[in-house]
C-alpha cells in the first residue's frame, strides 16, 4: 500500500481564497499588543521587541539558519495521501499546500551552518499545524538515514500539533519509524540537535523532538505531550502559570538551553563545531 505520493504539479486547490495573511502589512503582538510593521518585524527575524517569537514558515527558518546559498532541498515532492478517505482531509491538504506553499509539513535538505555540513529539517506550522502524517514521517526518516550513511549531524526545528489523525494508525506508526531512524543515527555516534519551537506537542514531542542529544527551545514556546485543555479537563484544575513552556521544560530538566532566535545560528554552529572534533 502506498501511503505517500509524489505531489502532482499544478495541484490547484478547489474553493480556496488567497489568505488575508499574505497581504497584511501590520501585525499585532499577542503578548505586548503593539502594532508591528511586517517588514520591520521580518528584519528582526519575526521577533517583537518585547521578546515574543512569532511563528516562521519552514523556508524562512532555513534561510535564517544556514550559510548563504548552502541549502539544497531534498524530497520536495513527497506529500501525504488521503488513504483513509477521511472527512475533509483531501481539501485540507490542498488548502495547506496552497497556504504554506509546501508539499507537506516539513522541509529537509543538506545545509551548512557556520561552515559545518549537516542534514537540516524544519517543520512548517502553516501546513496543518505541522502535524505528522506519512509524508512528514518519511522525510524525517530519510533525513536520518541519509545522515547516518554520510556520517553527518542532523539539525531539526520542530513545530507540530502532533500525529495527523486524518491518517489514523499510519500517522501513529511514524512516531516509531522516525524514532527508529534516530536510534540508528545515534548508535553511529552522530550528533542530533533539536530546536523546539512554538508549539511542539503530542506525537512529535513523544518521538523525534525529544530525542536530540542537545535540545534547544525557543523562548516562550509551548512544548508538551498532552494538550493543555485536555489536562485541565482531566485534573479539573487551572494549570499553573507558565505550564508547558520552554522555561518550564528547562526548569524540569527536559531542555539543555533556551536560545532566542537571533542567537540560534551561532549556538547551532558552535555545537556542530564542538562535535566535529574527534578526540
Amino acid at each position: 500500500m502506498a501511503f505517500v505520493a509524489k505531489n502532482k504539479p499544478n495541484d490547484v486547490p478547489r474553493q480556496v481564497k488567497k489568505p488575508a495573511a499574505a497581504t497584511e502589512t501590520e501585525r499585532v503582538c499577542p503578548r505586548c499588543k503593539s502594532k508591528l510593521d511586517v517588514g520591520k518585524l521580518w528584519e528582526n527575524r519575526n521577533v517583537c521587541s518585547c521578546g515574543y517569537h512569532f511563528k516562521l514558515k519552514a523556508r524562512d527558518r532555513v534561510a535564517l539558519t544556514v550559510d548563504v546559498d548552502s541549502f539544497e532541498p531534498l524530497w520536495e515532492d513527497i506529500t501525504s495521501v488521503d488513504v483513509l478517505e477521511f472527512p475533509g482531509y483531501e481539501n485540507k491538504l490542498e488548502l495547506s499546500r496552497y497556504v504554506a506553499g509546501e508539499a507537506d509539513a516539513v522541509v529537509c535538505g543538506r545545509a551548512k551552518i557556520s561552515g559545518r555540513p549537516c542534514i537540516l529539517f524544519a517543520m512548517d506550522p502553516f501546513f496543518m499545524m505541522g502535524s505528522m502524517g506519512a509524508a512528514v514521517g518519511e522525510k524525517i526518516t530519510r533525513a536520518f538515514e541519509l545522515a547516518t550513511e554520510e556520517g553527518l549531524p542532523v539539525v531539526g526545528f520542530t513545530v507540530s500539533g502532533g500525529a495527523r489523525m486524518q491518517e489514523g494508525l499510519i500517522s501513529l506508526m511514524q512516531m516509531a519509524k522516525t524514532s527508529a531512524a534516530v536510534q540508528r543515527h545515534s548508535a553511529a555516534g552522530l550528533l542530533y540537535l533539536t530546536v523546539l519551537t512554538n508549539p511542539t506537542t503530542g506525537g512529535v514531542t513523544a518521538s523525534f523532538a525529544m530525542l536530540g542529544d542537545v535540545i534547544f527551545a525557543e523562548p516562550g514556546a509551548t512544548v508538551g505531550f498532552a494538550g493543555a485543555r485536555v489536562i485541565e479537563q482531566t485534573v479539573g484544575k487551572k494549570l499553573p502559570q507558565g505550564f508547558q513552556t520552554a522555561e518550564f521544560l528547562l526548569a524540569h530538566g527536559f531542555a539543555d538551553a533556551i536560545v532566542p532566535r537571533d542567537e540560534q545560528r551561532w549556538a547551532i554552529g558552535n555545537m556542530l563545531k564542538l562535535h566535529a572534533v574527534s578526540a
Binding site: 512516531m175 516509531a176 524514532s179 534516530v182 513523544a206 518521538s207 525529544m210 530525542l211 512544548v223 508538551g224
Partner: peptide, 9 residues
C-alpha cells in the same frame, strides 16, 4: 513526551 520517545527509540 520524552519518556514515550525514549521507549520508542
Amino acid at each position: 513526551g520524552a519518556a514515550i520517545a525514549e521507549n520508542l527509540l
